[in-house]
């Protein structure tokens, strides 16, 4: 059955999952496109490498397809897929043996406090944050990236992670404190 453009816009996750399970494999493309767009940059952020992220996302989609029958809440496919993707990213990181070539925070930017106060070059800021993110716990990093890189609301994050919004606010707060300390110490 062909995938119509209207499907891409309107079809709810649960309806698409049921179509796939009913034998309409082509409908799976709707979910792949939808969540490649939503989580692609998140994967790049976790892995620090677009090629590794593409491999992880592709493998996660294939795994999700193979076990789609065990997705207990098809309407929450996104949250289910998110966990598969996160674990796949962890596996890829372990298998690849290394993260990106991590730049020490103190080498990633800032040469003077005055310059920080005046505003850093965007590239330097990004590089320093990238290096600092590597020093967070996995939970803090995940929460910070979802909040400030993906710009999700706490309600969206709570649905995605199956953690209360209050707990996530605390995680983000701690992540910010840690990042401030790491980036501040590197000045």
């Amino acid at each position: 059955m062909p995938v119509h453009e209207a499907d891409r816009v309107e079809a709810a996750d649960g309806a698409v999952v049921r179509r796939v399970l009913g034998g309409d494999v082509e409908a799976y493309r709707i979910l792949v496109e939808r969540y490649r767009r939503q989580f692609g940059r998140y994967a790049v952020s976790l892995l620090g490498d677009a090629d590794l992220a593409a491999d992880a996302v592709q493998e996660a989609f294939i795994r999700a397809f193979d076990s789609l029958g065990s997705c207990r809440e098809p309407d929450r496919f996104g949250a289910w897929f998110y966990r598969i993707l996160t674990n796949q990213c962890h596996t890829v990181r372990t298998r690849s043996g290394a993260r990106r070539d991590t730049v020490p925070v103190e080498d990633a930017g800032l040469t003077s406090r005055e310059r920080a106060d005046a505003g850093l070059e965007q590239g330097e800021l990004a590089a320093r944050l990238e290096a600092a993110l590597d020093q967070l716990t996995p939970e803090q990093r995940e929460a910070f990236v979802l909040k400030y890189v993906d710009e999700r609301s706490y309600e969206e994050m709570a649905a995605l992670l199956d953690v209360s919004a209050d707990a996530l606010k605390m995680r983000v707060h701690r992540a910010r404190e840690a990042l401030r300390a790491i980036m501040g110490a590197a000045r």
Partner: peptide, 19 residues
Amino acid sequence: SDEMLEAAARAYARGLPEL
């Protein structure tokens, strides 16, 4: 620091490619 952190997050996000 908060302002710098949020500016850094925006700059970092802009540098992440779409797959």
